[in-house]
């Protein structure tokens, strides 16, 4: 019986202590924010949507290689010897056309590795974070500055050039073989 009343008394007292805290907090300013209307300022270096300044990209594949989830897709075509593609703003010479630079932001885990390794700092994280889209293919961001048909032409050109080179090499080899054979026959 005594325990019962002591319990009731203790419960009431401790609840009142708690209520006093709550009551005091009724008069402190609220800590919540009405989100779509107000927003926090994000700190410098926050990790949200990726962006690539494609003019500076030298097509070195470093970012694609370090990405732990493989969500950067790059394709490059080597520039011809007489072509000059200029330099990135950090001074690195650009030697290839970046015909494809896609980032699948659905797969990206925002780990910041790609921005750390980039030699020209052309891939970086912006503070844009409201990136929901209605279609899944819209989550793949295309950064290349080449029009699709031009890029396709570049790729075909390169393939042809390579094929021609290979054919020339094969022909040279055959010739050498023939010469060798002739020598042996002699």
């Amino acid at each position: 019986m005594r325990t019962y009343f002591r319990n009731v008394y203790r419960s009431l007292i401790t609840i009142l202590i708690g209520m006093r805290q709550t009551w005091r907090h009724l008069f402190t300013p609220s800590v919540t924010l009405q989100y779509p209307h107000e927003k926090w300022d994000l700190p410098v270096g926050t990790r949200q949507q990726l962006f690539v300044n494609i003019d500076d990209c030298i097509g070195c594949y470093k970012c694609a290689r370090i990405c732990p989830v493989d969500c950067i897709y790059i394709d490059t075509v080597k520039a011809k010897p007489d072509e000059d593609l200029g330099k990135a703003s950090t001074g690195n010479p650009i030697r290839q056309h970046v015909v494809r630079f896609d980032i699948d932001m659905f797969k990206c885990c925002y780990c910041n590795f790609c921005t750390t390794v980039c030699p020209t700092d052309c891939i970086y994280m912006t503070d844009k974070y409201e990136t929901s889209v209605y279609d899944r293919s819209n989550g793949i961001y295309h950064f290349s500055k080449y029009a699709p048909d031009y890029a396709a032409k570049l790729i075909v050109d390169e393939k042809e050039a390579e094929a021609a080179k290979a054919a020339a090499r094969a022909a040279a080899k055959e010739k050498a073989m023939a010469a060798k054979k002739a020598k042996v026959a002699e």
Binding site: D70, I140, H142, I155
Partner: peptide, 9 residues
């Protein structure tokens, strides 16, 4: 993680 995409299309 295989995903295949056309170039730039």
């Amino acid at each position: 993680f295989e995903r295949t995409l056309p170039a730039n299309g």
